[in-house]
Amino acid sequence: MKKTENNKNPSRAEVWEQEISIYEDIILARQKVKVMMQEMGFSVLAQTRIVTAVSELARNIVIHAGGKGRMSVCEVSKTGKRGGLKCIFEDRGPGIENIEKAMQSGFSTSNSLGLGLSGAKKLCNEFYIESFLGKGTTVTIIEWLP
């Protein structure tokens, strides 16, 4: 698992994990990511973009996975040069039937604007989504320092 890999990696890998089950957890997740990004030296704009993406993805866990999920955040580095921040959102929800459709801007199953997944993707450098029906969904986002 990705989390344990990071735990074993001794190089300044601060790993932070949190259960996402209620709306208050979204605020905690946002605050934690913001503080980590500040410490790493990200610009205010990058912080705003990523914290917004975190907010969308954490809300997806609360709404679509019934609050059965967790988020982990860690620092990553690209061949020892550029640093970055990786956030992983894992849930044990129903999974997404059609990822392509779910990624479309404006698609929603919850009477919302349908900007959560598509918006989060636009807001970060790298975005990965994996979903298994009946098992859950994992979304990973990475933002690199300039």
Partner: peptide, 14 residues
Amino acid sequence: MKKEVVLTLIHLGL
């Protein structure tokens, strides 16, 4: 609205 918030909102498609 802060400039970062505005940039993010438009990025988001809102």
